[in-house]
Amino acid sequence: MSDSASPAPYIDLRRIGKRFVKSLDVAARIARHLGSSVREEVVHAVDEVDLAIRPGEVVGLVGESGCGKSTLGRMVAGILEPSEGSYFYKGRDIRTLDAPEARDMALRIQMIFQDPFASLNPRLRVKDIIGEAPRVHGLVGRANVDAYVDDVMLRCGLDPEFKRRYPHQFSGGQRQRIGIARALAVNPDLIVCDEAVAALDVSIQAQILNLFMRLREELGLTYLFISHDLGVVEHISDRIVIMYLGRVVESGPTEDLFDSPNHPYTQALLQEVPRLDQRHAKFSAIKGEIPSPLDPPPGCHFHPRCPHATARCAEERPILREIAPGRRSACHLNEGAV
């Protein structure tokens, strides 16, 4: 996804993959020894995905549950180790970074989680939740922590008066602000937002989205914005990446992609987003369910649900190709002679 005309990517993931293996228990191992055909269960949560994010860009990562978007986000944030592929941070393979550089990278890439109730330690006061990391990492002296925390809280729309409170004393929207403040406290460049507004009420969601956009302007932040909500992603992103069952099916600039979706999955997805201006709609519904990632269909993962599927789609995996400048899609239909 690296265009020649644009600046060097901040992070660049190449053919990155993540497998989760459920290993066999004792009974199953004995059974296999005795000739049973039990196998380890392998989920290919992320399968050869390329993702590059340039400085200052907001990339929206969209997909339905089980498509691997959170796993990919966690790999970007360094919480999960990729099982295959390579990860370049500012042009350098992260496997070649020494310890101080790796720590610097860990601080520069922060994450905000979906559930503002589960992601804050209930036994810490807000000032410790926000102030601990910058103090430990020596970003701010012990004497200045208080003023520093006040500053970060104000920036996130929180009243510093409340910094001695515990998380349970805040509402969901305010907690999400605490999560944002915690991420911002270590001066990150890139923030991975994993469904960061999904648990919030509409009016609160708008407040938090506005906060994200304001912070981006003030601090020059880069976001990887993961969401299942196309409306939210469309609103905030410059570029959109769409995943289905562990693979990227389409990517491109937001406006192009929404104006002329190329991949049949994208088309179906966009058609089914409920919109305010669409009244008395006839919901038509794409057929079928999302297959289990334990046993994905061969060839193109989407072919059992695709209205245009051909024999080739069931056999050969389509490659993500450039279909227009900045646009990529993984569909056999783009090759004309199908």
Binding site: A206, I236, L276
Partner: peptide, 24 residues
């Protein structure tokens, strides 16, 4: 009116949403 303004949609892309201040 505030609720409708809070819904992100394509004609408001990139612009600030009309948020309702405060909370319930």
């Amino acid at each position: 009116s505030g609720l409708i303004g809070s819904v992100p949609s394509r004609n408001k892309r990139g612009r600030e949403l009309d948020q309702i201040p405060g909370m319930t």
